[in-house]
């Protein structure tokens, strides 16, 4: 699983600079899959998940819990992006959601599949969390280490002493 995640990351990283933001990451994944990705902050208190990924035929929608720290939000968004990168279908169908559940109001009925970040019992969730950790780790390492193969002028200046 680790090797597969690294391989997928290998496809993604060439689309990103050494130091990249969450916005740049979302844009790169969107370019890779050829569909727009919408990221929304939501107050999910009372719901069972702190992150959701909704898969539609023409778009992807990611929701993350707003009432947590910026780093945690970033991990949640990366987790949902990882579902997209891994090609997960989403283990929850719209028909699985009880009609009186708050979630039913949040999600469009045309959704093809839903992934929710709750626990890591399912293999898809494990893979997405592992992939998210690898991405966030790259983001962190880029802040403490220069690029191994600098391409832009900024990266060359930052790498000049290493």
């Amino acid at each position: 699983m680790h090797a597969a995640c690294e391989d997928r990351l290998g496809d993604l990283l060439p689309l990103l600079p050494h130091r990249f933001s969450e916005e740049e990451l979302v844009q790169a994944v969107s370019t890779l899959i050829g569909r727009p990705i919408y990221v929304e902050a939501r107050d999910m208190k009372g719901n069972f998940a702190c992150g959701l990924r909704e898969r539609y035929s023409d778009r992807e929608v990611i929701s993350f819990e707003i009432n947590t720290s910026p780093l945690h939000r970033s991990q949640i968004v990366c987790h949902e992006l990882a579902h997209i990168l891994c090609g997960h279908k989403g283990s929850i169908r719209y028909s699985d959601i009880p009609s009186d559940d708050e979630l039913a109001d949040m999600i469009d009925w045309s959704v093809l599949g839903i992934s929710a970040r709750t626990s890591y019992e399912e293999q898809d969730e494990q893979e997405a969390e592992l992939m998210a950790s690898l991405i966030v780790q790259r983001m962190y390492r880029a802040t403490v280490m220069p690029a191994k193969r600098p391409t832009a002028a900024d990266e060359r200046w930052n790498a000049m002493f290493t």
């Binding site: 699983m1 709750t118 890591y120 019992e121 494990q126 592992l130 950790s133």
Partner: peptide
């Protein structure tokens, strides 16, 4: 305990 990513060796 569900928040721990135990199944995957990192």
């Amino acid at each position: 305990p569900q928040v721990v990513l135990r199944a995957v060796v990192i």
